[in-house]
C-alpha cells in the first residue's frame, strides 16, 4: 500500500516566557531564556492511502498541534512530515475576512489556495450550494452566525477536493441536518479512497468512522492501532481519569511529562539531533 502520511520524529517546542523582557532577551541574545514546552515530543506515525485515522487524547495532548503540523500550517521544530498529495484542514475558526461578503471570501480563499479563474468559477456554485447560505452569501461575513461561518468554512475546504482531509472538531458545529450532510460527504470521500484525519472528543463518531486511532498523551504517541484495539483502552483510561482528583491528575501529568522528556532527551542524544532555536 502507498503511504499517504509519514510523520517522523516530529517535535514541537514552544517557549514560555514570564514576560516581554524574557521574550526580547531570547530574541536578541544567543543565550536561551524562558521555559521550553514541548507540545509534541518525538511523534512517529504513518497512514496509508485511504486510511481514516482518529486522533484522541485528553485536552492538551497535542492533537490540534499535530493536525496543524500535518496540514502545513505550523512548522515542526524537529523531525519531518511527508505527505503524498495536498492536505486541507477544516477547523471551526477558519480564516474568513469579516468585511468581505461570503462570495468574495470564497474567491479569496480559493485564490490563496492556488486555484485559477476557471476553476474558481466552477467551484463557486458548488460551495455556495453546500454551505446553504442562500441570500446571506452576498452579505458581509461579520453578520453571519457562528454556524453559518463554520458551514462556509467547511464547504470551502470540502469542495476543493484535497487528497488528505484533516477535520479538527469541525463536525460538532451546525445543526443535525448539516452534520448529517457533512458526514455524508465524508462517506463519499471514504468511498473514493481519500485519506482522512479526525480530531474529535466524540467517541461515538470515532467508532463509526475511523479505522485507526492515534492516542496522544502529553505530546507523545501512547498507542496507535485499529479502532477496536485502541478505543477500549482509551475508554478505560477515561474512566480512571474521571475518578482522579485534581491533585492526582496534576501528579499524573507531571510524572508523564518528566518521563517523556527523559526518553526524548536520551534519544536526541543518541541520534545527535540538532535542536534549532527557531
Amino acid at each position: 500500500m502507498e503511504k499517504a502520511i509519514k510523520v517522523k520524529n516530529v517535535s514541537k517546542k514552544y517557549k514560555l516566557y514570564s514576560g516581554n523582557k524574557e521574550r526580547f532577551l531570547d530574541l536578541v541574545t544567543p543565550k536561551s531564556y524562558g521555559k521550553d514546552f514541548y507540545a509534541l515530543t518525538n511523534v512517529n506515525f504513518e497512514a496509508e492511502k485511504g486510511d481514516i485515522v482518529g486522533f484522541i487524547g485528553i485536552n492538551g495532548s497535542g492533537k490540534s498541534t499535530l493536525s496543524n503540523i500535518i496540514a502545513g500550517i505550523l512548522p515542526e521544530t524537529t523531525g519531518f512530515v511527508k505527505l503524498n498529495g495536498e492536505a486541507a484542514l477544516i477547523a471551526v475558526a477558519s480564516g474568513l475576512k469579516g468585511d468581505l461578503t461570503g462570495r468574495d471570501n470564497i474567491e479569496l480563499k480559493l485564490l490563496m489556495l492556488g486555484f485559477n479563474k476557471n476553476e474558481i468559477k466552477q467551484l463557486e456554485p458548488e460551495i455556495i450550494e453546500f454551505a446553504e447560505l442562500e441570500t446571506f452569501i452576498d452579505q458581509p461575513v461579520k453578520s453571519y452566525s457562528s454556524g453559518m461561518k463554520s458551514r462556509l468554512g467547511f464547504a470551502i475546504s470540502v469542495n476543493i477536493n484535497p487528497d488528505i482531509l484533516i477535520i479538527d472538531e469541525a463536525l460538532s458545529v451546525g445543526d443535525k441536518a448539516f452534520a448529517e450532510k457533512s458526514l455524508e460527504k465524508m462517506r463519499e470521500f471514504k468511498k473514493r479512497g481519500k485519506t482522512m484525519i479526525f480530531v474529535s472528543h466524540s467517541l461515538g463518531q470515532m467508532k463509526e468512522f475511523c479505522e485507526k486511532i492515534l492516542w496522544l498523551e502529553y505530546g507523545v504517541v501512547k498507542d496507535y492501532g485499529t479502532t477496536d484495539e485502541v478505543l477500549p483502552k482509551y475508554e478505560q483510561f477515561l474512566k480512571q481519569w474521571k475518578k482522579m482528583s485534581n491533585k492526582e491528575r496534576k501528579k499524573y501529568r507531571n510524572d508523564k511529562i518528566t518521563e517523556n522528556m527523559k526518553q526524548f532527551q536520551s534519544r536526541a542524544f543518541i541520534y545527535g539531533q540538532r535542536r534549532r532555536k527557531w
Binding site: I73, P75, G95, M112
Partner: peptide, 8 residues
C-alpha cells in the same frame, strides 16, 4: 491568520 497554508 488568513493564510491556510504555509506553502503559500
Amino acid at each position: 491568520r488568513m493564510l491556510s497554508k504555509m506553502n503559500f
